[in-house]
Simulated scan of single mutants.
Amino acid sequence: MQEPKSVYRREELSEKAITLLKKLIEIPSFSKDEYNTSVEIENFFKDNHIPTNRFKNNIWAVNQYFDDNKPSILLNTHHDTVKPNKAYTLDPFLAIEKEGKIFGLGSNDAGASLVSLAQVFLHFYAQENLDYNLIIALTAEEEISGVDGIEALFPQLPNVELAIVGEPTQMNLAIAEKGLLVIDGVMKGTPSHAAHPNVDNSIVKCLADLQNILNFKLPKVSDYLGEVKITLSGIHSGVQHNVVPETCLFTLDVRVTDAYSNREAFDIIQAQMKSKLTARSFRLNSSKIEIDHPFVQAGLSLGRTTYGSPTSSDQAIIPCTSVKMGPGDSTRSHTADEYIYIDEIKEGIDIYIKILEKVL
């Protein structure tokens, strides 16, 4: 294998990023079906003379002068996408460049972050005497919080001290992120004929229980993420108009702040409710990086801002200090005719490099 270049012009990196993004957009990559995009990512690094490793549909690599005695900074984002919604007016699998934008499914979430981080890794790959190793991991199943993405890969990665998670944040720093707790509940009552009195109607009892919890506020408020948010996202009961059902089923979507672990939030919510609750998982916890962390301070010195993110990402399952940052706008994610501005990719590459130059 040839030696990689040691110096790349920013224009060259931008061109490589745009070319790669267009290729990835035109390869369907739904969660659990990311093999073809993983091959395209492998080919990108191969073409740039960088050896890669594969674990399932996750592709990762380390810098040329990797040193086991040094801590590592991880560059991570995902190459899976959601399925396109029915409101698309453009072909979601056709990369269309117009009006300074690139349209296509996954262009904003998180294709722009992926191709930008890939160029950043290229930029630093052959540099010697860095204070940190640099690892890039472009992973699968983020959109479904799957178990075969970064969660499965992370134990194989060497000595990661900080993870930079690429998601659309307008290149500002999401220094805290809400966790996700999905709770299924059941309220039981006494089944009966609808024509007869019933003071133990499961639906009526459930509605009262839900009204109580939706008005309840967990006492701790996060500086960056505010209050824990509880949303009723589903309810089901009864199949016949003349039968009072025995059970009423419901689902709560709980966005947990760094003030609580998911388990703590669940226990508090259960204590407030008469329904029987079951958590689908406790694994997607909130995350936080301190404001005085060198990476955050480097970003602030370049005029970037910090905020708390209400949306979840692979940060929830990365077991080390992490920060979410990437080109694009989160409000465009999962929308019809998704797009990214070309200038956002150029800016993303530049800002990533400038921050890491202060840290590495």
Score class of each variant (00 low, 15 high):
290 E>A: 15
289 I>G: 04
298 A>E: 15
315 Q>P: 04
295 F>M: 12
302 L>R: 05
288 K>P: 01
313 S>D: 05
289 I>E: 02
283 R>G: 01
298 A>M: 13
290 E>W: 03
303 G>D: 14
292 D>I: 09
286 S>F: 06
296 V>I: 15
301 S>P: 07
281 S>L: 07
287 S>K: 15
292 D>F: 06
306 T>R: 14
291 I>M: 14
294 P>M: 12
318 I>Q: 07
314 D>E: 10
299 G>N: 02
308 G>D: 00
293 H>I: 06
315 Q>D: 09
288 K>S: 06
313 S>E: 04
282 F>C: 08
299 G>Y: 09
285 N>D: 04
288 K>R: 13
318 I>W: 04
284 L>T: 03
320 C>N: 13
283 R>F: 06
318 I>L: 11
304 R>P: 05
296 V>N: 08
319 P>D: 09
289 I>A: 09
311 T>Y: 03
304 R>Y: 01
312 S>V: 10
295 F>E: 12
285 N>R: 13
308 G>P: 02
302 L>V: 08
283 R>V: 03
295 F>V: 13
306 T>N: 13
316 A>V: 03
316 A>G: 05
299 G>K: 00
291 I>A: 10
314 D>G: 12
294 P>H: 07
298 A>Y: 12
290 E>T: 15
282 F>W: 12
281 S>N: 04
313 S>F: 11
298 A>H: 11
306 T>V: 15
312 S>P: 02
286 S>D: 00
299 G>L: 02
301 S>F: 01
300 L>Y: 04
312 S>Q: 02
281 S>V: 00
300 L>W: 03
310 P>D: 15
303 G>F: 13
320 C>W: 12
305 T>W: 03
319 P>R: 09
281 S>H: 03
281 S>F: 02
312 S>Y: 02
314 D>V: 10
314 D>P: 10
317 I>A: 09
306 T>E: 13
300 L>M: 11
315 Q>G: 04
305 T>E: 14
304 R>D: 07
307 Y>F: 15
311 T>V: 07
284 L>C: 01
285 N>Y: 00
294 P>K: 02
308 G>L: 05
299 G>P: 01
303 G>M: 14
317 I>L: 10
283 R>N: 01
